[in-house]
């Protein structure tokens, strides 16, 4: 089955296919994502626990919640969600990521439904989720509003979307493109196009236009002294994350 490639940019998909096999090596090519992951998970788990009234100290706190991770890659977010008890679907427009993710989930003893395809396709098929994770994807799609609208359709009323991306300003150009791709070589050159970056206000407007209500936003801030990422209430100047609700 071929995905309908309405908002998928084929050149972007090819770039990530080339990187797929290295997903799970914490010191490999995806090291920056592994470094950012605890921070992303802190935000996601706290938002879900708050919105759906779950206690993270309880066993299987996310039991009964159906979660979709868009652009699931090797399953860096799907596996933690499954480990917390959620029913997880991971979708990726890069076909090569699917067997990589499936193999790793088997190894981890986790049951995760990985699918080759797109958010639009799942929406057309009438799939519905409690939570949609939309992390570092929107800056790679051809039509952000059409894409976010598909995300909205995938949520049940009262559902939660967590969406992260990269801000567009001189600092984000310096950090995310010059710094991450050229100086640190964390990401292959050409991973990001600066013009596709979205400011938090633009993203809030896009989310609202797509029919969701943005309720929270925070920055992911890299600290070069501790060499780690932290959540910030104020600094959304480069990487940032938002939470939005579909009104019941």
């Amino acid at each position: 089955m071929q995905p309908s490639e309405t908002t998928v940019d084929p050149a972007e998909v090819a770039k990530f296919e080339a990187m797929a096999a290295e997903w799970w090596d914490p010191h490999g090519k995806f090291k920056p994502l592994h470094m950012l992951n605890p921070c992303r998970l802190d935000y996601i788990t706290t938002q879900i626990a708050g919105e759906f009234d779950r206690d993270l100290n309880a066993p299987n706190p996310f039991q009964g919640l159906r979660i979709l991770d868009i652009g699931c890659g090797g399953g860096l977010l799907c596996e933690p969600m499954a480990r917390l008890g959620a029913t997880v679907v991971g979708v990726d427009a890069a076909a090569r990521n699917i067997p990589v993710a499936e193999a790793h989930a088997r190894q981890s003893g986790l049951d995760i439904d990985y699918r080759f395809g797109t958010a639009e396709e799942l929406a057309e098929n009438g799939e519905v989720f409690d939570i949609v994770l939309n992390m570092e994807v929107v800056e790679h799609v051809a039509d952000p509003l059409a894409y976010l609208t598909a995300c909205q359709r995938l949520l049940r009323p009262g559902g939660l979307m967590v969406c992260s991306t990269i801000n567009r300003n001189p600092k984000s150009f310096a950090m995310a493109i010059v710094g991450a791709e050229y100086v640190m070589r964390w990401l292959p050159k050409g991973t990001h196009e600066w013009s596709k970056f979205i400011t938090p206000d633009e993203l809030y407007a896009l989310i609202a236009n797509a029919g969701l209500e943005p309720v929270d936003r925070k920055g992911f801030v890299f600290n070069p002294i501790t060499w780690g990422w932290k959540l910030s209430d104020r600094d959304l100047s480069v990487n940032y994350v938002t939470a939005s609700i579909k009104s019941a």
Partner: peptide
């Protein structure tokens, strides 16, 4: 504890590091 709350694999080398 932090790793467990995030749903991470507590035996993974990046967690233990």
């Amino acid at each position: 504890q932090d790793a467990h709350h995030r749903g991470e694999n507590i035996g993974a080398i990046d967690v233990l590091e």
